[in-house]
Each structure stands twice: as C-alpha cells, then as structure tokens.
Design a protein around this nucleic acid. Sequence first.
RNA 1: GGAGGCGUCGCCUAGUCCGGUUUAUGGCGCCCGCCUGCUAAGCGGGUUGAGGUUCACCCCUCUCGCGGGUUCAAAUCCCGCCGCCUCCGCCA
Length: 423
Amino acid sequence: MLDLRVIRDDPDRLRASQRARGESIDVVDELLAADEARRSSLAEFERLRGEQKVLSKEIPHASGEEKQALLARAKDLAAAVKAAQAAADDAQVRLDELAMVPSNIVLDGVPAGGEQNYKVLREVGTAPELDKVRDHLELGEGLRAIDTERGAKVSGSRFYFLTGVGAQLELGILNLAMKTAVDAGFTPVITPTLVRPEVMAGTGFLGAHADEIYRLERDDLYLVGTSEVALAGFHANEIVDLDAGPLRYAGWSACYRREAGSHGKDTRGIIRVHQFHKVEMFIYCREEDAIAEHERLLGWEEQMLAAVEVPYRVIDVAAGDLGSSAARKFDCEAWLPSQSRWMEVTSTSNCTTFQARRLGIRERSGAGPRTVATLNGTLGTTRWIVAILENHQRPDGSVAVPTALRPYLGGVEVLEPVVPTRR
RNA sequence: GGAGGCGUCGCCUAGUCCGGUUUAUGGCGCCCGCCUGCUAAGCGGGUUGAGGUUCACCCCUCUCGCGGGUUCAAAUCCCGCCGCCUCCGCCA
C-alpha cells in the first residue's frame, strides 16, 4: 500500500513507476477521485455528528414540551447521521480497495521493462572447468544424499528426501547462514509457518502470486513461502523503537510453494520444489536508511556465497519483474554447470514503506509516529546444495566440501560416492 | 472440545451492576518549564492513535480487544468474533 499523501502531492511519480513496471496508469486518477469522494463524504458525516452531539447534551437539561421537541429533532438527526456515516464508510472502503491495487513505487535507477531487462552488476568467481559434468541429482544420488524417487512416492512430484550427507549439507548451509547473521548482529528467530490471512495479505503475497500459496481452508490459515511473511507480521500494528538502529532478524523456517505456473520447468532434482528450508534476513529501519540497508543485505549474501565458494553474478532486477512490494530487488545467481546457465540462489528486496503501511508498523519520531521501511534477503536455502554439488564435483563423482562447511560435516573434506555413479 | 475469568490512552489502575454532570480517574514512567551551587526533592504544565480542516495556531470527528445492534445519547445494555489466563477432557 502506498502513502495517499504522496499520490495526492505527486501523482506523476506513481504514473512513471506504473509505466516502468508495465502496469496500468489509470488507477492513479481513480485513486485521486476516490480520495476526494472519501474526504467530502467524511466532512459531511462529521458535521452532522457534531450537531448531534451538541443536541444530545441539551436533552438531559430540558423538560416538558421543550424536551419532546428536542427528542424529535434528535431522532431525525440520528437518521441523517447514520446515512452520512454509511456513505462515508462506503467511500472509505472503495478507497481502501483501490489503494491496494498499485504496486510499490520503484526506486530511481531500477531498469525498466520485464524479466529479460535485468542489469548485470558484477560476476564473481570463475566457472569450474569440467570435462564431464554430472548434474546435482546424479551427484546427490551417488552420494546417497538426495532421493527424489521416494520423495515422489511419499508426497508426489517436487518432493524429496535429503539423507545422510545431504541432510548434513542442508543443516550446514543453514547453520552457517545463521552464524553469519548472528555475527552481523541479527537476532535469530524460528518462525511459525502457518499464518493468518491478514498477515499474508499484508506482505503483498495475495495479489498476482496468490496461486503460489498453499491455503488450509478449514482453518483459514496459509502456509508461508518464506519466513519473510512471519517476520513482517512479527511487529504488525506496533510502534517499534529504532533509536538504537535498525531491527535485524534472521528467520529459519520451512517454506512451501505450490509452483502452480511452472509445469515442466526444472522438473529434475531439487531446484524447484514444494517444500524447502531457508534462512532469511529481515530488517525494519527508517525510510531514509533503507537504501544503505539494502546494500548491506546484498553484502551479507555475497559473503555467504563466497564462503561456499560458488561462482555467481549479481543482477539488478527490472521493474516489471519485481514483486508488488519491492521497490528494488537484487538477485544473486549461482553458476549451474550442468545447464550452463545462472540459477537464482538469493534475492533481496527493499520494500520501502509498502509492507509496513499495510501491516501498521511504525516508529516514533519527532513529528509523531511514521511508517518504517522493511527489507528482506536470502542467506541460505536448500537449493544451495545444487550449486555446491555441481561446482565442487570431481571427475570420479566425489564432491569437495568448501572449507566453511566442513565443521558441519564432521570435518570431512571430500564426500565420496557410496555406489559407483553410472555414466 | 467443555466450563469459568480477563481485555480501559507506554505500564499499573478507577469507572461497567444502575447509559447522560467523564472533555475517561489516579499513580508510575517520560517530556517541557519554574525553583535550587550541581543532582535529588518540590511546584506547574504536557504525554493513545487515526482522520478531516488549516500557511500555522485553533477546532472538529472517530478510537476503552475487534465487528455489529439498541438508543436522542454506549467504556457502560444486547449479539457475534478474536486474544490471553485457569481448570476439565482428548492427544502427544
């Protein structure tokens, strides 16, 4: 949700943003009209209500015929107040609905256009030179680390078991991510993965991407696709204290995604799955600090990628490919040797005040409470196993363990295949 | 799942039975001022949030967990919901 006062004062900013995203600009004028309708109907209600209150106070002091006359007038007025209130409420509801329509205003510098119009900011590391490339599933099966056949047997397609070193590898990635976050001053949090509708809506996930989300109809709860949802809801309807600096949380949770629109895409292995684990950074800060915090989030992500020694590039995602809440988004994409392409492994969004306004998250400032900014970023997920296995594979199907992960695998330097891999 | 209790402006609290003199009481904390070598104490004032209006000050409306209803008038009466606590049952 956007700040109506900004739209009122500078509607062209929203028009430019909508254009960059490839979204409707008509909504701007509709919004301005609805706002005007709301204000005039509200003024009428308040005028009548004020009159009613004055009259109502005279009644106990009156008596006899005078009182009867006052009562009669008051009764008429009560009906008028009720009607005016209904009109004002309707206008408010219409405005509220419209206000939820536009996506966040993109920041200056964000590339315009769609998914293909991203800008590459940098490439770090070099792709391994491999004569014979095994993909992560072949490697993972050889190591008895990944079992997608039994995953499908038990839960269906896009489910999997991580076994042995596979389970250890996932825990290693997540624990290293948590350690990185805690060392950077984040508060570690284990979050709920089922949330109420208003929290899901508040984070902006029930718009265009509603099909992606699992819903438990009997209980009116949603399964989260990221702990961002719970961490954003954590301070919902609160006035937080940012005097000591931004609030930084690192959430560890399972994540659930329906992958409704991705039939036939990434069907092999564990690149695109219905359930995985993730450590997610989440920041509440002052609006003016958001851009700097965003850079920091990207920095911690790159620190993690460096630690697992995987080549990657950083892209500045184009306006049309941003989520509705994001004003800017940087993705880190790891090199995927088996497909000779880049694969998203982290994503960090600056949501400015968009989420916080919907969720009622404010801070105290000299001029009274004001809405905070929220940001999020990935620090590690199950998918990282894919990038690590493929980039650290060796000709015999074994996989070198990056130094930073060795403590989480009992000090082992190389993961050896349990059965010879076929080729 | 059943029974009971509770929810008031940062925290605590009065008011709710019996609707109007409540612009919601008082204390703590916090902020400003006065006083005082300094500090403390003391004295005076301020201190929920949202919206409207305005250059600004002022003023107005809403806000007593949330949403409805009754009434000229609701913190107060009625209905529904949510959250927390206690006990019982069931499950682990």
